[in-house]
């Protein structure tokens, strides 16, 4: 598996997880040409293969359509009026595009606190991502290259903490935050996310940093570089691919979270996901808020997805062990 990472090879060897990338990346995709390279001699001949391949194409097109349809349904529903959504399905808009308008979105952003919730989502996910990356990079470097007593034992404990599901932290941390006045604040939500993002982040970065060739670090130390300087000028730049994947994974994880914020945020600090789930009780009559709200919450992840495809896939693949 490890041969398929498309992480840039200048510097450390592939990221520990070496998750596969979509072949959209520069590496040529061998898949398309390989199966057809040994044709001619086989029984069955060209025609049946052609037929077989068009059946496969048909099946895959159908599957792709099935996958796109729910998203298209959300988008079109979000652009239709409450009454239209109550009387018939979004697909009628395909033949009658006059149903579509941005009214739901402008109404959404004008009131109902959705705009504030969107802003809260940003306020929660950006600092969380920065903090996780910074704290984990520092710790990862220390675990990989600095000597201190009990280093390996402590790292093993950190790896063990990977197993802890967030559910276990909910009640105790709620009590803790209640005692120190962090309950219901953006800062509380951020701290919780950072803590539960750290084990995986440290694990990932330590393993990545550990593969930096020892000679490079020795050379830097010989040149009189301080540890701090080596960390910021050498290790961080070399670790960029892993850091990018981690940052994207962490950002999406927090952006899309509902459970943690459901408990730790109050009405003033709730992110978009929590604001929307409170409208679920009257699902039928709230489609005019829920559909555009859900789509709004999707826009940022989708942009990240299309802009950073390779790191996105690697981040998600690596993060899936969580």
């Amino acid at each position: 598996m490890s041969g398929h990472s498309t992480v840039e090879r200048h510097g450390p060897s592939p990221s520990p997880a070496s998750p596969p990338a979509l072949p959209a990346s520069p590496s040529p995709a061998p898949s398309a040409s390989a199966p057809s390279s040994a044709p001619g001699r086989r029984r069955g001949g060209r025609l049946s293969r052609l037929l077989g391949s068009s059946v496969v194409q048909g099946v895959l097109i159908l599957v792709a359509l099935v996958w796109i349809t729910p998203l298209a349904g959300l988008l079109l529903s979000s652009l239709r009026s409450e009454q239209d959504n109550a009387t018939d399905g979004w697909w009628t808009a395909l033949t009658d595009p006059s149903q579509l308008s941005l009214d739901n979105y402008s109404a959404l952003l004008r009131d109902s606190g959705i705009g504030a919730a969107f802003w809260n989502t940003v306020l929660i996910s950006v600092p969380t991502t920065v903090l996780v990356v910074v704290i984990a990079a520092l710790a990862g470097y220390a675990f990989a290259w600095l000597e201190f007593p009990g280093r390996d034992a402590v790292f093993l404990v950190v790896v063990g903490l990977l197993v802890v599901p967030v559910q276990i932290g909910l009640l105790p941390v709620a009590k803790l935050f209640g005692a120190v006045g962090l309950f219901g604040t953006v800062a509380g939500v951020v701290l919780f996310h950072v803590a539960y993002g750290l084990p995986f982040a440290i694990f990932l970065l330590r393993n990545y940093f550990a593969e930096i060739p020892r000679e490079m670090l020795e050379a830097a130390r010989m040149d009189g570089g301080s540890e701090w300087r080596i960390f910021s000028r050498l290790v961080l730049p070399l670790g960029r691919p892993a850091i990018a994947s981690l940052a994207i994974f962490q950002f999406l994880w927090v952006w899309n979270d509902m459970l943690v914020a459901l408990l730790f945020a109050d009405n003033g600090s709730q992110p978009l996901t929590v604001a929307l789930q409170s409208q679920m009780r009257q699902f039928g009559s709230n489609i005019g808020v829920l559909a555009p709200g859900a789509f709004l919450s999707l826009v940022v992840p989708l942009v990240v997805f299309f802009a950073f495809q390779r790191h996105f896939v690697q981040g998600v693949m690596a993060g899936s062990v969580k």
Partner: peptide, 30 residues
Amino acid sequence: EKVRWATAFKLVLFLPMAVSFLAAGIIFRL
């Protein structure tokens, strides 16, 4: 593996990984 537009197909199927479970939930309630 047998089609030339495998990249586009993988992209489409991977897309929902970017979607929050909340949004996926609303999508499927609809």
